[in-house]
Every structure is written in structure tokens, then in C-alpha cells.
């Protein structure tokens, strides 16, 4: 796949967009702009998946990250809305902590990146034309335990959210007469 000039050009174009947008997420002073650049990063990542012939994964990336995660962030920001949005994503002076965290992340990335046997991960077969069926089969056979654990975790989170929301509603209505 990565042998024609077009795919190489596309890779570097997408990589540039991803890195620049990700840096801008951090640098933007208005947190709303950060969210928008985060969406750009996610969509460019989907392009990266497309380049690897993983069309289903690309669509999932767009649906879940660009479509849902960004919107959830918007909701979260709107709930804690401040009067002046221009100064919501400021820098702080925690230089020591920042440097420590960066060094730690880089070190971990280097260690795990160096340990991974990249050449063995690359398959030499052609990517199947229809990847969805294979992903589905793998999720319910080889990776069924992680799949179920993730599903359970999401269910717990969902029930927890409902409980939190209900609790407030019950308290709100406690003082008033029931009007149902």
C-alpha cells in the first residue's frame, strides 16, 4: 500500500495536519477553539486509517470521536460556562511538573516503541476488501473478554449517569407537590 507517490504524499499531508492541529489544541487560549482543533485532529486520524485500508475503523473514528466525543466536550464546557470565553485555556507556571510529565511520556513512548516488533506486526497479505465481518468475528471470538469488559464498563457508566441525574430530579421535586 505505502509504495505509490500518492499515498506517501497523503501520509505526510495528514501527519502534518494531525501534529499541527494537536499542538494548536494546547496552544489555543479559547477552549472552544481547542475543541474545534481537536475535531480536526480526529478527522485527520480517520484519514490515516483510510490510508491503511481500514475504512470501517475510519468511519468509527469519525462517528465516535469527531461526532460524539467533541460534542460531549462542548456540553461539558457549556455546563461550566464562564462569562469570558477568550481566556479559558490558559498556561500555568507548573514548569517542573510539566517537564517531568513530558520526559516520562517520551521515555515510556521510546521504551515501548523500541520493544515492539514492528516488522512482525505488518501483515504481508492483502487487506480483505470487507473488514467489518472480520472485526465482528474477532470481537466475539478471540477478543470476547475485553469486548465484554468494555461493554460492562460502559453500561456501569450509563447506569451511574442515570442514577446521578435521577437523584437530582428526586430532590428537586421533593419540596413541590406532585403534578403528574
Amino acid at each position: 500500500m505505502i509504495n505509490s507517490i500518492y499515498s506517501v504524499l497523503a501520509f505526510y499531508g495528514l501527519a502534518t495536519v494531525i501534529v499541527v492541529a494537536a499542538i494548536l489544541v494546547v496552544l489555543m487560549r479559547n477552549i472552544m477553539h481547542s475543541v474545534l482543533f481537536l475535531a480536526v485532529t480526529f478527522i485527520a486520524m480517520a484519514g490515516m486509517f483510510l490510508l491503511l485500508d481500514a475504512d470501517f475503523l475510519a468511519a468509527v473514528q469519525i462517528l465516535v470521536y469527531a461526532g460524539a466525543v467533541c460534542i460531549m466536550l462542548v456540553f461539558a464546557i457549556m455546563v461550566i460556562r464562564r462569562t469570558d470565553m477568550a481566556e479559558t485555556n490558559l498556561f500555568n507556571r507548573q514548569v517542573l511538573a510539566g517537564v517531568g510529565l513530558t520526559v516520562l511520556t517520551l521515555a515510556l513512548g521510546t521504551i515501548f516503541g523500541g520493544r515492539t516488533a514492528w516488522t512482525q506486526l505488518v501483515t504481508h497479505e492483502a487487506v480483505p476488501k470487507n473488514t467489518v465481518q472480520y472485526i465482528g468475528a474477532f470481537m466475539l471470538s478471540k477478543y470476547v473478554i475485553p469486548f465484554e469488559v468494555a461493554a460492562l464498563l460502559l453500561l456501569v457508566a450509563l447506569v451511574g449517569a442515570i442514577v446521578l441525574a435521577r437523584d437530582e430530579e428526586v430532590k428537586d421535586n421533593a419540596g413541590t407537590d406532585d403534578y403528574s
Binding site: 468511519a59 462517528l63 469527531a66 461526532g67 460534542i71
Partner: peptide, 12 residues
């Protein structure tokens, strides 16, 4: 699925 994924972005 592509259609649903792309359409979901428009709310943004």
C-alpha cells in the same frame, strides 16, 4: 455506516 458517521459531524 459511512453515511451515519459523516452525518453525525454536522451537529458540530
Amino acid at each position: 455506516f459511512y453515511l451515519l458517521a459523516i452525518a453525525s459531524v454536522s451537529s458540530l
